[in-house]
Deep mutational scan, measured.
Amino acid sequence: DDWEIHFNNITIRLHGVSEEQIEELKELIKNGAHEEELRKWAEEVNR
Rank of each mutant, 00 (worst) to 15 (best):
D1G: 14
D1S: 14
D1I: 15
D1H: 15
D2L: 13
W3E: 02
W3F: 10
W3N: 03
W3R: 04
E4S: 08
E4Y: 14
E4I: 14
E4K: 07
I5Y: 11
H6A: 08
H6T: 14
H6W: 07
H6C: 12
F7P: 01
F7I: 14
F7C: 14
N8Y: 04
N8W: 07
N8A: 11
N8P: 08
I10R: 02
I10H: 08
I10D: 07
I10L: 12
T11K: 06
I12S: 03
I12R: 02
I12G: 03
I12K: 03
R13S: 13
R13I: 14
R13D: 12
R13V: 13
L14R: 00
L14A: 03
L14N: 01
H15C: 05
H15K: 10
G16A: 09
G16K: 14
G16E: 08
V17D: 00
V17E: 01
S18T: 13
S18D: 05
S18C: 04
S18N: 07
S18H: 07
E19K: 13
E19C: 13
E20T: 10
E20C: 05
E20Q: 14
E20F: 08
E20R: 12
Q21F: 05
Q21N: 05
I22G: 03
I22Q: 03
E23A: 13
E23M: 12
E24F: 08
E24P: 01
L25G: 02
L25W: 04
L25A: 02
L25N: 00
L25S: 00
L25P: 00
K26G: 04
K26H: 09
K26M: 14
K26E: 06
E27P: 00
E27M: 14
L28N: 00
L28T: 00
L28Q: 01
L28F: 02
L28S: 00
L28H: 01
L28A: 01
I29F: 04
K30H: 06
K30A: 12
N31C: 12
N31Q: 11
N31P: 00
G32V: 01
G32K: 02
G32L: 01
G32T: 01
G32A: 02
A33N: 02
H34W: 03
E35L: 11
E35S: 05
E35V: 12
E36A: 09
E36N: 09
E36P: 05
E36F: 06
E36G: 06
E37L: 05
E37H: 05
E37M: 08
E37S: 10
E37Y: 05
L38Y: 03
L38H: 00
L38K: 00
L38V: 13
R39M: 14
R39F: 11
R39H: 07
R39K: 13
R39D: 03
K40M: 09
K40L: 12
W41P: 00
W41H: 01
W41S: 00
A42H: 06
A42T: 05
A42K: 04
A42C: 12
A42S: 06
E43I: 06
E43L: 04
E43S: 03
E43Q: 06
E43C: 04
E44C: 01
E44S: 05
E44Q: 08
V45T: 08
N46V: 12
N46T: 07
N46Q: 15
R47A: 15
R47Y: 14
R47K: 15
R47V: 15
